[in-house]
Design a protein around this nucleic acid. Structure first.
Length: 392
DNA sequence: CGAACGGGCCAC
DNA sequence: AAACGTGGCCCGTTCG
């Protein structure tokens, strides 16, 4: 039984039809037009055909194959290709056009076209379903539609967020845990330098910075995910050796993290499970497999699970307490709408916003108590605005 | 025709 | 051998 049967989440704000109306050409139309205009007859929307054009016909350098023998055409790879000044201008231009087309067609097909089809006729809102026991770590999963992956990274993507609006006379509140997984790590692994940094309100990403903020962030996340020099090198486009030096520097700066990861790994091998900070178990019965790649994969998952799982426990505790907390505070017109892993979204009548903001912040920040007293501060940022993009 | 799968990519 | 964790959805392709 994967799905929590019966109910969807509470209502989502109304979909803003104005913002969601698309004026773009249909993808089919675009492809037909580009096929006519091209000397080679290809559907470049198909990764296979794009790969064949770039690497079989045009013989561009740097081609890699996927495990099934297809040419890889990931954005990261195409980025590198287009950056190569040795390549013919028209090839680079084609690649950049394809990257742009990929980005826009992704947004159109997955969000702009699809989301309006989910608007409920009665409520005039989009309702998602949350699966409560679908992930190994204890996170929720959102489906039909997934409202936990609404774009935010790019300017064009954020346009989609602006379409999630509050009722007239109300606003949306977005309240999100600040760097919750790094704080969980600092607490669970008991890293003095990391705990002090959070206690002092320092910017961890800036602190990690051996070079740029982008690299610092990648390392911080990499640590949580069970990093390897290879993976970090891949992501940052640096040499394996350089990546290895970053990791070594990180481990030196925060002594105890490497030990913690090794201890967690050993615990997983000895017991076949790991635990969140609240004692909830995440089982890895196959972790002692002799298959090296599977073993490595399970080890990284087992290192990540207590961190990701503890953060999932914390926000669940906040969610369980939230309705009664709102009611006790007399906030009858403030409603919890959505959960996005480290963020809760509410709709609140304007008259209630000033009270709701500090209340939801408090419930979220105190969620570990009284079971666990965190040795680092848990911090929540909360903000109200008329649409999701502005509130975030 | 639908199911299953791979590739790709959106989020945290 | 793979190489950074957790998910879900879309498209193209293949298969029955």
């Amino acid at each position: 039984m994967r799905r929590w049967s019966g109910h969807c989440c509470r209502c989502l704000p109304t979909w803003n039809a104005r913002a969601s109306r698309s004026t773009a050409t249909s993808s089919r139309g675009y492809r037909q037009a580009s096929r006519r205009a091209s000397r080679v007859s290809k559907n470049l929307g198909s990764p296979r055909q794009l790969g064949e054009l770039l690497f079989d016909q045009l013989k561009l350098p740097g081609g890699k194959r996927t495990k099934n023998g297809q040419w890889e055409t990931r954005a990261g790879l195409l980025d590198d290709l287009a950056a190569n000044e040795e390549l013919p201008e028209d090839a680079r231009k084609l690649i950049n056009t394809m990257l742009e087309w990929r980005q826009l067609s992704k947004l159109k097909s997955t969000y702009t076209d699809a989301l309006p089809l989910h608007v409920n006729a009665q409520s005039a809102r989009i309702h998602t379903s949350y699966a409560l026991a679908a992930t190994t770590t204890g996170r929720l999963a959102s489906t039909d539609p997934n409202l936990q992956n609404i774009p935010v990274r790019t300017k064009e993507g954020r346009e989609i967020r602006t379409a999630f609006i509050a009722e007239k006379g109300a606003q949306l509140i977005s309240a999100d845990y600040s760097q919750i997984e790094l704080r969980v790590l600092a607490h669970m692994a008991d890293i003095p330098q990391l705990k002090k940094a959070f206690a002092d309100g320092l910017d961890i990403h800036a602190m990690t910075a051996s070079e740029t903020r982008r690299r610092a962030k990648a390392i911080n996340f990499g640590i949580i995910y069970g990093i390897s020099a290879f993976g970090l090198a891949n992501q940052l486009g640096i040499s394996r050796q350089e990546a290895g030096e970053y990791i070594a520097t990180y481990f030196k700066r925060f002594p105890g993290i490497r030990d913690y990861m090794e201890t967690t790994k050993k615990f997983a091998h000895d017991h076949g499970y790991v635990e969140t900070v609240f004692g909830r178990r995440v089982h890895y019965p196959e972790i002692n497999t002799k298959n090296p790649s599977m073993r490595g994969f399970l080890e990284r998952a087992a290192i990540n699970a207590p961190i990701q799982g503890s953060a999932a426990d914390i926000i669940r505790r906040a969610m369980v307490r939230m309705p009664s907390a709102l009611e006790s505070a007399g906030l009858a017109h403030t409603t919890m709408l959505l959960q996005v892993h480290d963020e809760l979204i509410f709709e609140a009548r304007e008259a209630e916003i000033a009270t709701a903001l500090p209340l939801v912040q408090k419930v979220m920040e105190q969620a570990p108590e009284p079971i666990v007293k965190f040795s680092v501060p848990i911090h929540v940022d909360a903000k109200a605005a008329s649409n999701w993009e502005a509130a975030h």
